[in-house]
Structure formats: structure tokens, C-alpha cells
């Protein structure tokens, strides 16, 4: 029963996501769900390096920026079709991340985190100062949506773009699922549990760690491209360390290392500030408390808790286990 329930729940959620824009008349909520789905992709990427491999990377937003700028510049400066730019951006981000990951992975644990954080700052500084390419803080305007599909689907319509993002989010979620079940996924989890042991067993640990980092960058690049062509404007502000911390928070809150935890976390990260509408100082305090309390009291995130609550409720209602 339990095994059958999970795919059913997934299908129901998917159906809900597909139906949502048809029922929601206030388009503001469509935008929020759309952004949350972009953040879902970000969080999946963060989960691969943080949740599965056990290395906290604080540069996910910087990598998102690489993807966003790559896609934007290809389409605006080189006149590439938007589709091609968006498709190639994740690969550029992944390639870039090899150069970030290689030196960063020479240190372990906390120091990996610090080095990646410094890389995020470097990306930010370069985006700010390399004005001949990026226009710096002033940002790039009028980033086009993708060309109409078969002359039918017009992506200037927010709902059409919503379905594009939904498709990518579903594909990326499926990819994560495959990765988790693969032997690579098992090796990554072995590294998280005991890196020395994995290394002693003859696993080329650094290759797997680099793979995890590059994979997470690929996700960030895809999210960045989707973001840039949706909002239509980018500047470095969106790709700073604060947003990287949001990605970490999404994974922690939702459930480290789980498949759907980051989805939950991503929605929380997008919807919480919109609903709370609190001052920046309180946002910092609330997010910080969430991080500390979640790590101490529910180190496995909200999803396992919800799962337990669901089972308890199911028992109460008399469902067979």
C-alpha cells in the first residue's frame, strides 16, 4: 500500500501543478509557483552536492548567475536563438564549475564551504566589474522569451512559460531520481558517510566529488537560464551569497538527501518571504533560526516528518499499513 501511495501522490501533485494555471485567476500566484519551480531545480542541484555527497557548497546562486548570463549573452550578443542559448547554458555552467570545483575540492568539510563561498564572491565581483560584457550593476534589459513553438505556443504568455518551466523541473527531478538509484548515487552517499573508507575501498573519491559538484552546477545553470528569460532582466544582485544560502536552506528545510524534500524546501523559500512580507532584518533572523533549529531538531528535514505525520494520520483513519 505504502509503495503504491508514493507514485500516486507524485501523480496527483503533477496533476495539480498542470491544472494550477487554469484555476488560479490571480496571475501573481502563477508567477510565484513558476519561481518556486525554478528554485526546485536549484535545490535539486544543491541537494546532489550537499545532501547526497555531504559537501556544503555556497556558490549555487553564483553558478545560477553563470547560467543566466551565459544564456542571455549568447542570445543578445551573439544573436543565437533563445532555445539554443537556454539549452547550452547549463553545459557552459557545468564546464565553468570544473574550474571552480577542482581547487575547491582540495579541501574538505567546512573549508570546502568557505572556498566555494569565496568563489561566489568572485563571480559576483566579476559580474559587477566586467561591465563591457555584463553591464555590471546596471544589468541587462529586454531579455527575450524563447521563440514560439511551431508558431503556436507563444512564450510571452506567462502560462506557456509556466509549462516550459514545469517540464524542465519534472525532467530534472526525474534525472535526480535516476542519479539517486544509480551506482554513482550510492558511491556519493558512501562518500558522505565515510570518505576515508570509500577511498580505502579503492574508489577514486575526487572524481565522484567533482562529478557531484559539476552536476549541481548543471542544475544551477538550467535554473539560471530559465530565470533570465522569464524575468527579462538580470543584474548581479540576484546571484550573491545570500541566494546561495537560500538554496542551502531549501535543502535543509525540505529534507537533506531526499528526492522531494528540496521541492518542498524550494516552495518554502519562495513563498515564505512573500507571505511574511517582513523587514530584511527579521527575514535574516527567521531564516537563521530556521536553519539552526531545523539542523538541531530535525536534521533530516520536513519531508520525513511529514511522512511520519501522514502515516500516523493514516493509522488513525484506519488505513492498513
Amino acid at each position: 500500500m505504502k509503495r503504491a501511495l508514493v507514485p500516486l501522490a507524485v501523480l496527483a501533485l503533477l496533476a495539480l501543478a498542470i491544472a494550477a494555471p487554469q484555476y488560479i485567476t490571480v496571475r501573481y500566484y502563477v508567477q510565484l509557483i513558476l519561481l518556486a519551480m525554478i528554485w526546485t531545480i536549484m535545490a535539486h542541484g544543491q541537494n546532489i552536492i550537499q545532501g547526497m555527497t555531504g559537501y556544503v557548497s555556497i556558490t549555487q546562486a553564483g553558478l545560477m548567475g553563470v547560467g543566466a548570463y551565459a544564456s542571455t549573452l549568447l542570445s543578445i550578443r551573439l544573436g543565437w536563438p533563445v532555445w539554443a542559448s537556454m539549452a547550452i547554458a547549463p553545459f557552459i555552467t557545468a564546464l565553468f564549475s570544473v574550474f571552480v570545483g577542482y581547487p575547491s575540492l582540495r579541501v574538505k568539510g567546512h573549508y570546502f564551504a568557505i572556498v566555494t563561498l569565496a568563489f561566489n564572491m568572485v563571480i559576483f565581483i566579476v559580474l559587477m566589474n566586467f561591465t563591457s560584457l555584463t553591464r555590471g550593476e546596471a544589468g541587462i534589459f529586454n531579455i527575450q522569451r524563447p521563440e514560439p513553438l511551431f508558431g503556436l505556443v507563444d512564450f510571452d504568455d506567462r502560462v506557456a512559460y509556466y509549462y516550459l518551466v514545469l517540464t524542465v523541473a519534472v525532467v530534472m527531478t526525474a534525472l535526480t531520481w535516476l542519479l539517486m538509484r544509480s551506482s554513482i548515487g550510492r558511491t556519493l552517499r558512501a562518500i558522505r558517510q565515510n570518505e576515508n573508507l570509500a577511498s580505502a575501498c579503492g574508489v577514486a573519491v575526487w572524481k565522484y566529488k567533482l562529478f557531484a559538484f559539476v552536476a549541481s552546477a548543471f542544475y544551477a545553470g538550467a535554473a539560471g537560464a530559465l530565470y533570465a528569460h522569464y524575468i527579462g532582466f538580470i543584474n548581479p544582485e540576484t546571484f550573491g551569497v545570500a541566494q546561495s544560502l537560500d538554496a542551502i536552506l531549501a535543502v535543509i528545510l525540505g529534507g537533506t538527501g531526499t528526492l522531494f524534500g528540496p521541492v518542498l524546501g524550494a516552495f518554502a523559500v519562495v513563498f515564505l518571504p512573500e507571505y511574511l512580507r517582513i523587514a530584511e532584518s527579521f527575514r535574516l533572523i527567521v531564516y537563521g533560526l530556521l536553519l539552526v533549529v531545523a539542523t538541531i531538531l530535525m536534521p533530516r528535514g520536513a519531508l520525513p516528518l511529514l511522512g511520519r505525520a501522514w502515516h500516523a494520520a493514516a493509522r488513525r483513519l484506519g488505513f492498513p499499513k
Binding site: 564551504a113 542551502i248 530584511e280 535574516l284 533572523i285 531564516y287 537563521g288 539542523t295 538541531i296
Partner: peptide, 13 residues
């Protein structure tokens, strides 16, 4: 480390 990040946000806030 994540607790440390959270503390940083609290202190900054």
C-alpha cells in the same frame, strides 16, 4: 557548519 551559517544570519539580522 550549517548551524554556524544560521547563527551568522541571526547575528546580522
Amino acid at each position: 557548519f550549517i548551524v554556524a551559517l544560521g547563527l551568522t544570519m541571526i547575528a546580522e539580522g
